[in-house]
Design a protein around this nucleic acid. Structure first.
Length: 851
DNA sequence: CCCTGGTCCCAACTT
DNA sequence: GGGACCAGGG
């Protein structure tokens, strides 16, 4: 026996019990990940299980990726087939992309397509959900001040996580607000269906519904997966739990790993009963407890255990460590938030200078309750010139320009996605204004068509003024041309599935003996087959494409950017912000190219964009990481700061009313403390500014501070100056407005107005030379391809100014006309002013004079 | 029709 | 610190 020898007896038992249900109660730092990986390796290497028959579900994509790597290290050489390791949500998306149409029901209208979601559904993120709820509320005439869309959504999400439908909510409601919510919820569901879209919660719900409703689908998966492992089991909600049971089938070979003391997602529907009552649902379950902690010193462990011991709802356990003693828990009381941050930065700076005896790579984490606390720490780190990483907060895919183009792609993938359509229909501005959109919305409401459908209808029936119609037509052409690029197998696949009606399910290729052949091109769980067989290959064979495989996501994206002039317009803005946006877009194109190299189709690219989480951005190489306590789950650091220990902040004021919520805050505190390997420092600010402008408010120490035994605590950096090791607060006068060098540099380049801004080198330099390929492609199909508009020589009217002409503006002074757009009343001139940069002016209004 | 600037209100955690 | 919304000017 090989790797199993590295395990302690309990871990070994957890790894070797492979028949029937097992619940592993794994305390913090007890080698949980190791147990899961070794269990998978054991199944494959010693028991001859087929890798692809193993399914492991983790909490984040990052954790999944790491587990894949670890398993690979042990059994990598054995087979090309890999176990499926993924998050619940990613797993469900793949499952639904393959089989969701089994849920469709025949339409009552003869000849109409069946009702239900189709394979090219899109995923709605939080802002999509918000827009949708807002528009529903507007339509129903519900005041969004009293009942905010946000509150409605959280109610809906709560309902979904508890698997309640609108009717059930309605029946349970005993107040007018909940009643209203149930109405909105019902409408919301209808709209999602109409848009062929699902929200995050739906991914789980629909997967469960699918497995329950379609026996042949359930069969497929129960044949495929013989072993199911669930990580972070304490944070599973009802739908996830059901999914697990359905996948475990009759074999009951399910292994759940969790720690009830680390359950921190009840607000997302995580049901602690799933872990407390596992034995009820699986009576034959074996329980294994892992109680040896390999991470922290005894002091840290004792302190954390003492805090969480105040909770009532827990199974209770005795964690122990062989790392006796250790440094005491540091406690620092800062005068205010700025000082707290500077204290932390100072400590980290010293820590990094001094190093850690070389045995462990120096890494520190700053943990806080709310994302908004990160700002102070970021400023402090910059002032100390420390490189840091922030997990969470604003992510790449949250940026406006990225969302815009993702929305375009979503519309290309599924034009019925009205929320995305709405986002891009006039972005960048193309003359489709409020009135036009209102007409379209009314039309959609009257006809039952989607917004996209009513665009077509409005054009065909000339329901709008000629100008608006023209603008709509150009938008329609844009989307249709982009959709034509999807082409080939992909579109065919969509078309085919759209016509296989009568609710008939095309069963997957399944043979009835144990040697099952799966259809990897449809249900590709990653690296199951050599690359040559990936879907991309089929796309490549389609006639009419300029080059094999070139009309992938990246090309569609480039096409959209070119044709809309999105980047060009940004470049014309000529501001640092605009350029950083351009860079972000280049980054997006790169991501799309990578996606193509992996052989992914557009839907897979979009799924990825929708499902990357903040926690996935964690970089284990970073020396300093700032993040929320939630994001820190599963990680460990030699040095940990737990900041803002104040009543109202942590525990958060919103939890005061409910004892269960306070217990969850306490578990969160436990999670935070147990991230520390060697040193743990707690801190609090005696005065804290709540929002930028308000006066600082005095704070009360968090109750969790008092729950740490006093003997384990040592005050550090205190005003009493007990230890000179730590800086005194006075050294940091946070009152002055001096910024670090970096900031000064930034502000300099910032302030510099675009004096020497030179007019951008004439019409659209071919940044993306693919445009020629695309033109050829269209030509080869006998379609016309319109190149992005190039400024045309203006027909000089009485007052017409031409590009190149010198003009004078009452406010901006002398300048040179750079570009002329539009006709008549709407003529716009882009003029380059030496002191003010490029300005776009309406000729009619701008009082220009020829010079 | 679009853009700007002012004002008001909000501010947990996240797949 | 910032997003949403509105009024007013070009």
């Amino acid at each position: 026996m090989s790797f199993l020898d590295q395990l302690n007896p309990q871990q070994r038992e957890a790894v070797e019990t492979v028949q029937g249900p097992v619940l592993i109660l794994a305390g913090a730092g007890s080698g949980k990940t190791r147990v899961i990986t070794y269990r998978i390796a054991h199944l494959i290497e010693h028991l001859g299980a087929m890798p692809e028959s193993i399914l492991a579900v983790t909490f984040t994509n990052k954790a999944a990726a790491e587990m894949v790597g670890r398993v690979d290290k042990i059994v990598g050489g054995l087979s090309i087939a890999k176990p499926v390791i993924s998050t619940f949500h990613s797993f469900c998306v793949r499952l639904l992309r393959r089989d969701v149409e089994a849920l469709r029901i025949p339409s009552t209208t003869l000849g109409a397509p069946p009702i239900g979601l189709t394979k090219n559904f899109v995923i709605y993120d939080e802002s999509d959900q918000q827009s949708l709820v807002k528009s529903i509320m507007r339509r129903l005439g519900i005041d969004d001040k009293q009942t905010t869309p946000r509150a409605v959504l959280s109610h809906i999400s709560w309902a979904k996580n508890h698997m309640l439908d609108p009717q059930e909510i309605y029946l349970q409601s005993n107040d007018p607000t909940t009643e209203k919510v149930s109405h909105i919820y019902a409408e919301y569901r209808k709209e999602l269906l109409k848009a062929n879209a699902m929200d995050f919660d739906d991914l789980l719900l629909e997967a469960v519904r699918l497995l329950k409703a379609a026996p042949e689908v359930r069969d497929y998966y129960s044949r495929r997966f013989h072993h199911v492992l669930v990580d972070e089991y304490q944070d599973t909600n009802r739908p996830q739990y059901e999914l697990m049971r359905l996948l475990a089938g009759e074999r009951h070979n399910v292994c759940a790993v969790g720690d009830e003391d680390q359950s921190i997602y009840s607000w997302r529907g995580a049901d602690i009963r799933n872990i407390l009552e596992f034995e009820k649902d699986f009576p034959e379950a074996k329980i294994v407890r892992l109680e040896q902690n390999y991470r922290s010193t005894q002091n840290i462990l004792q302190a954390a255990s003492a805090v969480v011991a105040n909770n009532v709802r827990r199974k209770g356990k005795n964690l122990w460590t062989s790392r006796q003693g250790g440094a005491k828990i540091g406690y620092y009381e800062a005068p205010d938030g700025e000082n707290e941050a500077l204290f932390v930065a100072d400590w980290i700076a010293r820590y990094l200078r001094e190093g850690t005896d070389g045995k462990e790579k120096p890494r520190a984490a700053v943990l806080y309750r709310t994302n908004s606390q990160s700002r102070l720490f970021e400023e402090a780190m910059r002032r100390y010139q420390l490189k840091y990483h922030v997990v969470g907060g604003f992510s790449f895919y949250d940026r406006a320009e990225i969302k815009d183009l993702i929305s375009y792609l979503k519309v290309v993938q599924n034009p019925d996605d009205s929320i995305s359509l709405m986002r891009v229909i006039n972005t960048p501005v193309r003359g489709i204004g409020k009135t036009t959109i209102e007409v379209l919305e009314r039309l959609a409401l009257e006809t039952g068509l989607s917004l996209w459908g009513s665009v077509g209808e409005a054009i065909q029936r000339q329901l709008l003024p000629a100008r608006a119609c023209a603008a709509l037509k150009s938008f329609q052409d844009l989307i249709e041309d982009a959709r034509a690029m999807l082409g080939g197998t992909y579109a065919q696949r969509l078309a085919e599935t759209a016509t296989t009606d009568e609710g008939a399910v095309a069963p997957a290729a399944v043979e009835l003996n144990d040697q099952i052949s799966f259809d990897p091109t449809i249900f590709d769980f990653g690296a199951m087959e050599p690359e040559e067989e990936s879907p991309a290959t089929e796309v490549e064979k389609i006639e009419g494409f300029p080059e094999p495989g070139s009309a992938g996501t990246a090309d569609i994206l480039k096409f959209l950017i070119d044709r809309t002039g999105y980047i060009k317009l940004l470049e014309e803005e000529d501001t640092p912000e605009a350029f950083s946006r351009v860079e972000n877009l280049h980054e997006l194109v790169n991501a799309a190219m990578d996606s193509r190299d992996r052989g992914e189709t557009l839907d897979q690219f979009l799924d990825h964009a929708a499902l990357v989480s903040d926690a996935d951005a964690y970089d284990e190489q970073a020396q300093i990481t700032l993040m929320t306590l939630h994001a820190a789950k599963g990680l460990e650091f030699p040095l940990v700061f737990l900041c803002g220990l104040e009543e109202g902040l942590f525990p958060h004021s919103r939890t005061f009313n409910h004892p269960d919520d306070i217990e969850e805050e306490r578990r969160l505190c436990y999670v935070g403390m147990t991230r520390a390997m060697d040193t743990l420092v707690l801190s609090r600010a005696t005065y804290r500014r709540r929002y930028g402008t308000d006066l600082p408010e005095a704070s009360i120490p968090s109750r969790f501070l008092e729950e740490v035994p006093a003997v384990l605590i040592e005050e550090v950096g205190g005003r009493s100056g007990r230890t000179s090791r730590q800086p005194r607060p006075q050294e940091y006068d946070s009152g002055d407005t001096h910024y670090s060098y970096e900031d000064e540099d930034q502000s300099v380049s910032w302030r510099q107005p675009s004096v020497q801004a030179k007019p951008k080198s004439a019409p659209s330099a071919p940044k993306y030379n693919s445009i020629e390929n695309i033109a050829e492609f269209f030509a080869s199909r006998g379609k016309r391809f319109t190149l992005p508009k190039v400024p045309v020589e203006a027909p000089t009217g009485r007052r017409g100014f031409r590009p190149g002409q010198k003009v004078r503006h009452p406010k901006y002074g002398e300048g040179t006309v750079y570009q002329r757009e539009g006709e008549g009343e709407e003529t716009k001139l882009t003029v380059q002013f030496p002191r003010f940069g490029l300005k776009k002016l309406v000729e009619k209004y701008a009082q220009l004079e020829a010079v």
